[in-house]
Amino acid sequence: MRLPRVTPLSLLLLPLLATAATPALALAQEGGEAARVNLLSPNVGLMFWTLIIFVLLLFVLARFAFPPMLAAVEAREQALLDAIEGAKADRAEAAELLAKHRAEMDNARVEAQRLIADGRAAGDRLRAEMLEQTRVQQQELLDRARRDIEAERDRAIAELRREAVELAIAGASKVMDHNMDDATNRKLIDRFLSSLPTTATPAL
C-alpha cells in the first residue's frame, strides 16, 4: 500500500488552485466584523491549517494505522485460504483413500467368493470320490463274500457227498449182511455214484 506519488504536475496545480481561491478570501475578510455573516466566504488561514492537518494525518495513518491493520487482516485471509486449501486437499486425499479401500474391499470380496466356490467344489469332488471309493470297497467286500459263500458251499457239497458215501457204505454193509471184500464194495458203490448226476443241484 503506497500513497499516490506526488507528480510535478500536481505540484504545479497546488499554488494555482490556492491563488485562484485567494481573491475571494481577501474580499471576505474585508467585511470581517460586519453584521452580515457570509457562510460561504472561505478563510485562507483555516484552509491552510486544514490542508496541513489533513496531509499530516494522512501520512501518520498511512504509516502507523492502516498498514498494520490491513496486513493483519490479509494475513488472516491468507490463513483462512490456506486452511480452506488444506481442507480441500485433505478431502481429496480422503476420497482417494476411500476409493482405494473400496476397491480393496471389492477385491477381497471377490477373492473370498472365489475361495468359497473353490472350497465348495473341492468338497463336492472329495465327497464324490469318497462315495465312489466306498462303493468300490463295498462291491469288493460283496464279491469276496460271494466267493467265500460259493467256496463254502462247494466244500459243504463235497463233505456231504463223502458223508453220504460213508453212510451208504455203512447202510449197504448192514443190509447185505455179508462181508465182501472192501475193494469189491468200493467198486460197486463208485459205479452207483457215477450213475448219479455229477453236478450239484439246488434240490440237493
Partner: peptide, 20 residues
C-alpha cells in the same frame, strides 16, 4: 466551507493525479 473546500480540493488533486 473553508474546511470542506480544502478537503474537496485535495480530493480534486488526487482525482486528477490518479487520472494522469
Amino acid at each position: 466551507i473553508s474546511v470542506t473546500a480544502t478537503l474537496a480540493i485535495v480530493t480534486f488533486i488526487v482525482v486528477e493525479v490518479a487520472g494522469m
